[in-house]
Write a protein that binds this DNA or RNA. Structure first.
Length: 270
DNA sequence: CTAAGGACCTGTCGGC
DNA sequence: TGCCGACAGGTCCTTA
């Protein structure tokens, strides 16, 4: 479900409800997510006050004095703020109950998400190897060109690699490559530095615009405030195979790259 | 080291 | 209506 804009929308939606709240109880009904929810997590966080709700890549970090809970939404995860006592559904795996009388509920049908613990002053291995934030100054054409140097894999696969840059998933990889006019199948190492500069800029642009629109709602994604995202109306290629290109009218093609659906315009993208 | 494929899990949809 | 395969917003891990 979530790429960076959806995770940021979720973070921003839940943060006002969590900031400064004391954690009354952590209820884990299903610990078997991508990795097991640590058995001692409830004991670590209960009674503690939430100091901040942050984000690194697609991880939401709920910070308390002794460390942070790391929340990843995987493919199908979402979070909602609900009143205490709301009856849980089949896929409502975790509730973070607050003194305010509300709770943060994690729902994740496919269970590719994760809830982990990072002690204060330490960095979890999953975060340690992440690339820069796409909206930061550290991510630019020079950096991207260095990553692409000598690489034969498809540029689309490379920009979706979280060790290169975080937050670019299948929707926005397709969109950014369309906007940059680059064929998603092109070998990363065979693209000019100037074009990679354009690509870095379009990645920033498409992500920033999607965040401003509250993300992309495909099925039932809603931010923590319960509102859907409105970016779907602005998608040029994702989910549009067989339809005409917005720019030139050619029929958009679909191929599979790294087992992911890839849609592009053979006329506009080279 | 790189690149490619499998793995994890459930729900939904299209075709027969 | 029922069954079966393909596919879905992620990404780590294994294999070659």
């Amino acid at each position: 479900m979530p790429e960076l804009p959806e995770v940021e929308t979720s973070r921003a939606g839940i943060a006002p409800h969590l900031d400064g709240q004391r954690i009354r109880r952590l209820v884990v009904r299903q610990p078997r997510l991508r990795w097991p929810v640590p058995a001692e997590l409830a004991a670590r966080v209960e009674g503690e006050r939430i100091l901040a709700v942050e984000r690194r890549g697609k991880y939401i970090l709920i910070r308390i004095a002794t460390g942070s809970m790391l929340l990843h939404l995987g493919m199908s995860g979402s979070v909602r703020i609900l009143p205490l006592g709301a009856a849980p559904g089949k896929h409502d795996h975790v509730d973070l109950e607050l003194d305010s009388g509300k709770m943060l509920r994690l729902t994740d049908p496919r269970r590719f998400g994760a809830l982990l613990w990072q002690a204060q002053g330490e960095q979890h291995a999953l975060l340690a190897s992440l690339g820069p934030e796409p909206l930061s100054d550290a991510f630019d054409g020079d950096y991207l060109a260095r990553c692409c140097q000598g690489r034969r894999s498809a540029i689309k696969s490379l920009i979706m690699d979280s060790h290169v840059v975080v937050g670019v998933g299948n929707i926005y990889a397709n969109e950014a490559l369309f906007l940059a006019g680059i064929d998603p199948r092109r070998a990363a190492g065979r693209i000019s530095k100037a074009r990679l500069g354009t690509l870095a800029a379009t990645i920033k642009d498409v992500l920033a615009r999607a965040i401003a629109q509250g993300g992309t709602t495909l099925r039932d994604f809603v931010g923590g405030d319960g509102k859907p995202g409105y970016f779907k109306q602005q998608l040029h290629v994702y989910g549009r195979a067989g339809e005409p290109c917005d720019s030139c009218g050619s029929i958009l093609k679909e191929v599979r790259l790294g087992q992911r659906s890839t849609v592009y315009c053979a006329a506009c993208q080279r």
